[in-house]
Lab assay of single mutants.
Amino acid sequence: VTVDIKGMEYHFDNPEEAKKFAERMAKELGGELKVENGTLKVE
């Protein structure tokens, strides 16, 4: 699973970990979490 945090890509084997990480980063950065082509994106 790929997580894109404002252009920086992180790769996770575990989808649950990827989702938790993306949600935490969205909250910390005040960004919006989206799913695009199987990639979790925070913008």
Rank of each mutant, 00 (worst) to 15 (best):
V1N: 06
G7L: 01
N14C: 08
L29E: 05
E17C: 12
G31M: 13
K6V: 11
P15H: 12
M25G: 02
E28Q: 07
Y10D: 00
K34L: 11
E43M: 13
T39R: 10
E17G: 02
Y10E: 00
D13R: 09
L33Q: 04
N37F: 08
I5K: 01
L33H: 03
E32C: 08
E32R: 10
G38R: 01
M8G: 03
N37T: 05
L40H: 05
T2S: 07
E32V: 15
G31Q: 07
K27M: 13
K6T: 08
G30C: 11
E43S: 12
K6W: 14
A22Q: 02
E9F: 14
M8N: 10
T39Q: 11
K27D: 11
K41A: 04
K34R: 13
F12L: 01
E23N: 03
V35G: 06
N14H: 07
A18E: 00
G31D: 04
A26D: 05
F12T: 00
P15K: 08
G30M: 09
G7C: 08
E17H: 06
N37L: 08
A26L: 09
N14P: 00
T39Y: 11
A26M: 07
A22I: 08
I5E: 01
E32I: 15
E28A: 07
D4M: 15
N37M: 08
G30L: 07
I5Y: 08
N14A: 04
V3P: 01
H11S: 06
G38Y: 02
E23K: 04
E36C: 11
N14G: 06
E36V: 14
F21Q: 01
V3C: 07
G31A: 13
A18D: 00
L40T: 05
V35C: 13
E32P: 05
F12R: 00
G30I: 05
R24I: 12
N37W: 05
E16W: 11
K20P: 00
K41M: 09
L40Y: 14
G38D: 07
V35R: 05
A26H: 06
V35N: 10
L40I: 15
K27G: 09
L40W: 14
K27S: 11
F12C: 06
V3F: 02
E43N: 10
E23M: 07
N37C: 08
G38P: 04
E9T: 14
G38L: 05
E23D: 10
E32K: 13
F12S: 00
T39A: 09
V42T: 04
E32S: 14
V1M: 12
F21S: 00
K41C: 06
F21Y: 05
Y10N: 01
K41G: 04
E9C: 14
R24K: 13
Y10L: 03
N37E: 09
V1A: 08
K19P: 00
K34I: 13
G38T: 06
N14Q: 05
L33A: 04
G30R: 08
E43P: 05
E43I: 15
F21P: 00
V3H: 00
M25K: 07
Y10G: 00
L33Y: 08
Y10A: 02
E16Q: 09
A18C: 02
T2W: 11
K19N: 07
V3R: 00
H11A: 05
K34T: 11
V42M: 05
E16D: 12
E9L: 15
I5C: 10
A26T: 06
K20N: 11
G30V: 05
E28N: 05
K41W: 09
G7E: 02
D13W: 09
L29T: 08
T2A: 04
N14R: 05
F12D: 00
M8Y: 13
K27W: 13
R24L: 14
F12G: 00
F21G: 00
G31R: 02
E23I: 09
E17R: 03
I5S: 01
N14V: 04
V1E: 02
E32W: 15
Y10V: 04
K20G: 06
M8Q: 13
G30H: 10
K20L: 12
M8E: 11
V42P: 04
P15Q: 11
H11D: 02
M25S: 04
K6A: 14
K6I: 11
E28K: 09
A26Q: 07
K6L: 15
E17Y: 04
G30Q: 09
L29N: 06
V35E: 12
D4V: 15
N14L: 05
K19D: 03
T39W: 08
K41I: 13
P15C: 11
F12N: 00
K41R: 12
D13E: 11
N37A: 08
G38E: 05
N14S: 13
T2M: 09
G7M: 01
G30W: 06
H11C: 11
E43L: 14
H11L: 08
P15E: 12
G38A: 06
L33E: 03
T39N: 11
P15A: 13
V1G: 03
K41L: 09
V42Q: 03
V3L: 04
L29V: 05
E28C: 13
T2N: 05
I5D: 01
E32D: 10
F21N: 01
N37S: 07
I5W: 08
K6D: 15
V35M: 12
D4H: 15
L40Q: 03
F21T: 00
E32M: 13
F21I: 01
P15Y: 15
A18I: 00
K27V: 11
H11I: 11
E28M: 08
N37K: 07
D4S: 15
A18P: 00
G7V: 02
E23Y: 04
F12K: 00
N37I: 05
E9K: 15
N37D: 09
R24M: 14
L40E: 03
K6Q: 14
A22T: 02
A18R: 00
E9S: 13
E36Q: 11
V1H: 10
D13S: 12
E43Q: 12
K19I: 14
R24D: 13
K19V: 12
L33C: 10
T2F: 09
D13G: 08
G31H: 07
K34Y: 12
L33I: 14
K41H: 09
K19F: 14
L40S: 03
E32Q: 14
V1Q: 07
